[in-house]
Amino acid sequence: MAEFKLKASPALGGTAAGATQIGRFRLQENTGFAMASLALRTDDARSAVDQVLGFAAPGPGSYTTGDEFAAFWMSSDQWMVCASHDSNELLASQLKDKLGEQVSVSEQNDGWVCLDVEGADLSSVFERLVNADVHDLKKGTAVRTVIEHIGCFLICLESGHRYRLLAGRSFAHSLHHAVAAGLRSTVALNKLESAR
């Protein structure tokens, strides 16, 4: 029995990633992700990758979910594969074991902070955070963008209602602050609108 045991901490710190409720919006860190970047070494590997993922690896700007894995496009022949951390902490080595030297896989489990945002008419929030066309964002879109100088991915889980943000883990507090400020100002703007 080891003398010391290590406990995991969320990117936002503390022992549990608490949800923040702002008006009708809910903002929460999602710590349940295992992530691995997967890059093809040969074009021939594409079908093998599709087979392992259980779906066709998504094209540019897309996010696809399957039974076990989800993936979004990162760059040419490169994807970020996501899975439940509880059952797939060793996601990178799992993928590597299955795909061998056809691909390069890098563990990214803790490289990212993941913020899930839910609530009605989220487009009205994100139109003041990212320069993407958020009102036209369809489910399954993954946009590489910038929020207050923080590079991130904006993934649409449900158009207008549920979005996922992924950014470098070290930016967790700044990103959370920027999004929370956007949510608060949207609530205030909505109040002003309804008072008219």
Binding site: S37, A39, R41, T42, Q78, S104, S106, E107, Q108, N109, D110, G111, W112, G168, R169, S170
Partner: peptide, 13 residues
């Protein structure tokens, strides 16, 4: 060259 790169700066403390 068969080489792939990705940053893992933030993944490891």
């Amino acid at each position: 060259l068969d080489v792939q790169l990705i940053s893992t700066t933030e993944a490891w403390a």
